[in-house]
Simulated assay, not measured.
Amino acid sequence: MNARLVRAAVAAVLAASLLTACSGDADNNAVPREWIRKTYTETGAGWLDPDSTPSGVAQAIRTERTELDRSSGGGMEFLRYGDDMITVSPYRSGSLIEIEDYRNGYHRHQRHLTYWPAPDSTSFRGGGPGEGK
């Protein structure tokens, strides 16, 4: 009876560890949406930082949550988080922050994302649960 109880306890601990590890991956690859909502002013097109440059805003976002990849071009900064991406563009005296699906963002800005994987190719691996498993 004692051995059976020990095996059940070990199995429960292993299952809990596995579930925690799998769920943590999804959160680590996610855009920090809630932080962006709290930090920046919402507009109809995204969020606005009236004072900072795109590179400054991108750095602040990546300090909150590190991206999978980063690129820049045309005065804009691009941060990739799994199946989503953030575009930070110059806007008047500050920056406009947009969050969009990776596929849409890639097609919209692909001339600046030359080394990122095309979302329609077999080399693209999104960032949802189970990525790389």
Rank of each mutant, 00 (worst) to 15 (best):
1 M>L: 13
3 A>Q: 07
6 V>E: 10
7 R>A: 11
9 A>Y: 05
9 A>T: 08
11 A>R: 03
14 L>E: 02
15 A>D: 02
16 A>V: 15
16 A>F: 11
16 A>T: 13
17 S>F: 11
20 T>E: 07
20 T>C: 12
20 T>Q: 12
22 C>Q: 11
22 C>R: 06
22 C>H: 08
23 S>M: 13
24 G>V: 13
25 D>S: 04
27 D>K: 07
31 V>E: 06
31 V>G: 02
32 P>A: 02
32 P>G: 05
35 W>N: 06
35 W>C: 05
36 I>Q: 03
37 R>N: 10
38 K>D: 14
39 T>Q: 12
39 T>M: 08
40 Y>H: 02
41 T>S: 09
42 E>H: 01
45 A>F: 01
45 A>V: 03
46 G>R: 01
47 W>D: 01
48 L>H: 07
48 L>I: 03
48 L>Q: 03
49 D>L: 09
53 T>Q: 10
54 P>M: 13
54 P>V: 10
57 V>S: 06
58 A>M: 09
58 A>D: 10
58 A>L: 11
59 Q>R: 14
61 I>L: 14
61 I>Y: 10
61 I>E: 08
62 R>T: 11
62 R>I: 03
63 T>R: 15
63 T>N: 15
64 E>D: 04
64 E>L: 07
64 E>H: 06
67 E>K: 06
68 L>S: 14
75 G>Y: 08
75 G>N: 03
75 G>T: 07
75 G>M: 12
76 M>W: 00
77 E>D: 10
77 E>K: 05
78 F>I: 03
78 F>H: 00
80 R>E: 04
80 R>K: 09
82 G>T: 01
82 G>N: 01
82 G>Y: 01
83 D>P: 00
83 D>V: 03
85 M>G: 00
87 T>V: 15
88 V>C: 01
88 V>G: 00
88 V>W: 02
88 V>L: 05
89 S>L: 13
92 R>D: 15
92 R>E: 15
93 S>M: 13
93 S>D: 14
95 S>P: 04
97 I>K: 04
98 E>S: 13
102 Y>V: 04
103 R>F: 07
103 R>H: 07
105 G>K: 01
107 H>R: 10
108 R>V: 09
110 Q>V: 00
113 L>D: 00
116 W>K: 00
117 P>M: 09
118 A>L: 12
119 P>C: 13
120 D>L: 01
122 T>L: 15
122 T>H: 14
122 T>E: 15
122 T>F: 15
123 S>N: 07
123 S>D: 12
124 F>T: 03
126 G>P: 05
127 G>K: 08
127 G>F: 09
130 G>F: 15
131 E>T: 06
